[in-house]
Simulated assay, not measured.
Amino acid sequence: MNLTTTIDEKSAKAPGPFPNGHPSVLKRKVGVLLVNLGTPDGTDKKSMWRYLREFLSDPRVIEMPKVLWYPILYGIVLNTRPKKSGENYKKIWNTERDESPLRTYTRAQAEKLSEALRDLPDVVVDWGMRYGSPSTESAVNKLIAQGCDRIVMFPLYPQFSATTTATASDQLFRALMKIRAMPSVRTVPAYYDEPVYIEALARSIEQHLASLDFEPEMILASYHGIPKPYFERGDPYHCHCVKTTRLLRERLGMSDKKLMTTFQSRFGAQEWLQPYTDKTVERLAKEGVKSIAIVNPGFSSDCIETLEEIAGENAEIFHHAGGKNFSHIPCLNDSAEGMAVIEAITRRELMGWV
């Protein structure tokens, strides 16, 4: 005798009927939460101080005992850096929306992903920041208020680092610790070697190079750096970056003499991952290289580090050292190529829930 009983899936998940007086229950939904690094609310000193305090107080970012770091942070850094950082943000600020480009692009990515997933009516998309606003906690609360009892958190960092991906997860779970009816959660893994990501990067590079009136002699794949001791303690970030560049070379048919890995945005006196982007740019120019381009595969969206540091500061360094042609290749942002990556990975991570 066949004792297997077939249960209609929709009936098994049906929430009712409820007893009289039972509070209304929202239809169960799945939330998708895009999370990026963060942004100040303005370029003024107060906004920059608030943002930098939150960012630089994160023990994942600064792995130094508070008793040693906080006197430096509050005594020196937060008294000098906010003004300088504010001036740099002013150079790239989205004045039309009065916000940073990172916030503009992250919002656009969420809106376009929501539209792309319109065939999944029980999926709700929102976005938040690890530092600054909108906060991860506020985004989680919005999803829960819409009936989401499951959440897929998508950290928009292609390569994993404890300083980025891990701290985004930390912040998500801090928010969940305050919720009694806590939703189930999945976190999207790093996608540094995903074929859809490599293809999107390659196409964006090819399209940009085709638009130039010069051919770069060298292309730098510049990633945000981390202190070398973090790597020595086991952070896989360096390995992920190197693999992304290698896969890009293979896809583009370039050698390591044409496309090389460098690291930018170092902070403090300790050694960071090398080679440094700014030093490499200067060296190449002094060696007679006249034309270069820089791409930022570690950033899902253009931000202060790509628009001001690379397209601004490094262009000046190159020209000052004797270089002639410099071009910054935009990040994937909310382009068709960039959205193809986010959508493909999101749909995969939603499997079994929708």
Rank of each mutant, 00 (worst) to 15 (best):
E217T: 11
I179F: 00
Y223H: 05
R180Y: 06
I198Q: 08
K228Q: 10
F160S: 03
P155W: 10
D193F: 07
S138P: 03
G147V: 04
P183N: 02
D149Q: 10
G225L: 05
C241M: 05
T244Y: 10
R180G: 08
I151F: 11
M218N: 12
Y230R: 12
Y197H: 05
A190I: 09
L212T: 04
Y230G: 11
M177I: 11
E199N: 12
D235T: 09
Q159A: 01
S169Y: 11
G234E: 02
A145M: 00
A168G: 02
Y192F: 15
K178P: 08
L247H: 06
R246K: 15
R186K: 14
S222G: 04
A200R: 03
V152Y: 10
C148P: 01
E232G: 09
S169P: 05
E232F: 00
S161D: 02
A139E: 03
K178M: 10
K228N: 06
D193N: 15
D170T: 00
V152G: 05
R174K: 15
P195F: 09
P195M: 07
L172D: 07
T164E: 04
A175N: 08
E194D: 15
Q207F: 06
L209F: 08
M153N: 08
K228T: 11
L247M: 14
P155D: 14
A168P: 02
C239G: 14
A175G: 12
S138L: 10
I151H: 11
Q146M: 12
S211P: 02
K142S: 14
H238M: 07
D170F: 01
Y157S: 06
A168Y: 10
M218G: 02
G234I: 09
T245E: 04
R180V: 14
G225N: 06
S222N: 03
R180M: 08
I198F: 06
N141K: 10
